[in-house]
Amino acid sequence: MKIDREQLTSQVDRMKKNGYDYLVKITAVDYSDHVEAIYMLRNLDAGKDESLEVELKNDDLWVPSVMRSYRGADWYERELSEMFGIEIRGRTAERLLLEKWDGANPPLRKDFVWGVQYKAKEE
């Protein structure tokens, strides 16, 4: 199910009320022209899965946090922001989840090419 970023939190809340009380995974795919953040939710009793796909423009990468609905989103969101450079708004991440690395771009984006030596980021 494709939804807008603005509707994400309200949609997640609504789905949680409808029995989708389990967050399976938050991930993202970089399609070069845009980045898609995917929220996979599950209704444990009915055994139904639902994905929410949020399309993000390359120059406007942020999503609202869903920590309010699912506490399990914590690490997924942090991973998302470190690996894709997607800003998570509405929450605080006190530190990096994975250890610090010296590369410049987020590693799972497509403009990060495997095998190229990147210069360390200036502190």
């Binding site: 399976v24 995974k25 991930t27 795919v29 970089d30 996979m40 399990g72 690490w75 997924y76 799972l108």
Partner: peptide, 24 residues
């Protein structure tokens, strides 16, 4: 539960996302 999410390209995965059970 391990969830594999794959976006396929010819010959190669375009993106493979692994939901690893130990992580969560």
């Amino acid at each position: 539960e391990c969830l594999m999410y794959m976006v396929a390209d010819p010959q190669k995965p375009y993106r493979l996302s692994i939901r690893s059970p130990s992580f969560i």
